[in-house]
Amino acid sequence: MNHFLQVLFDGLLNGLVYALVAAGLSMIWGVMDVINFAHGEFLMVGMYVSYWIGFFLDVDPLFSWIASGAFLFIMGAATYRLIIRNSLGKSAMAPLLATFGLSMVLKNFCMNRFTPNFRLLSGTVLEGKTISVGGAILSVPQLATAAFALVLLACLYWMLKRTRLGWAIQATAMDSEAAELMGIRTENIYLLVFGIGGACVGITGGLMTSYLAVYPEVGSLFSLIAFVVVALGGFGSIPGALLAAIIIGLVESFTGFYVAAVVKYAAVFAVYLAVILIRPKGLFGW
């Protein structure tokens, strides 16, 4: 029973982190129909921002996520203004290739400036802290990240459903020309969506430095999983991303423990394929 609970909590905690990584990607994809291939590298940059702030200024990731979120908001908006906007409307492949190029630049820039070394923050407030729930041991840094994820996703959902900005984003996603005719400045919406997408992944990265090593390749597998989460949950759907991420976290965790650790990612992709075959729009697609 202890093992079952432990595996369950591991899956939930990992799933919630995946949900926050995927939320920004989901918004960008859902609203603009743009696949941000540099999403994993955005996560990596967020982690580096938090790491260096922690390293030089001794600020704990519990607080430095604000800086990494803000930095990535600006970076996301700048990416839209300088790269995406110029590639939109040219060909479907143009933004995709542009963000792929950006991912290469970011990864190699960090490799060059910071070396490929693995960097772990030591002495953080939550380091090494655990709590026991029914015999299962939960890591407090991971729990904190998951809790932040839940709160942020709730805020994001509330913003999309209950605010004028959220309605404008949804309207732009449904029909950008009609939205523009209704007086919505779609250009600004796109800019904001890219910024929010960046901020989500920046905040996640900022928090993750409390328990995960930072290195230039750290975002690769997270970004792959984020793509699966978005496609499984439905493009642009925050509840979809949350549910899909939890499903993926649990599948990964239970398969890893009860079947074999080496097939856990294979199981994730198998579930994704099965759901997509039955429901191509994903669980909650717009």
Partner: peptide
């Protein structure tokens, strides 16, 4: 066995612990 570059090794370590 595990896939290198993993996002987490929770189930791997749980298997060892069990």
């Amino acid at each position: 066995p595990f896939n290198n570059g993993a996002t987490n090794l929770s189930s791997e370590v749980q298997t060892l612990k069990a």
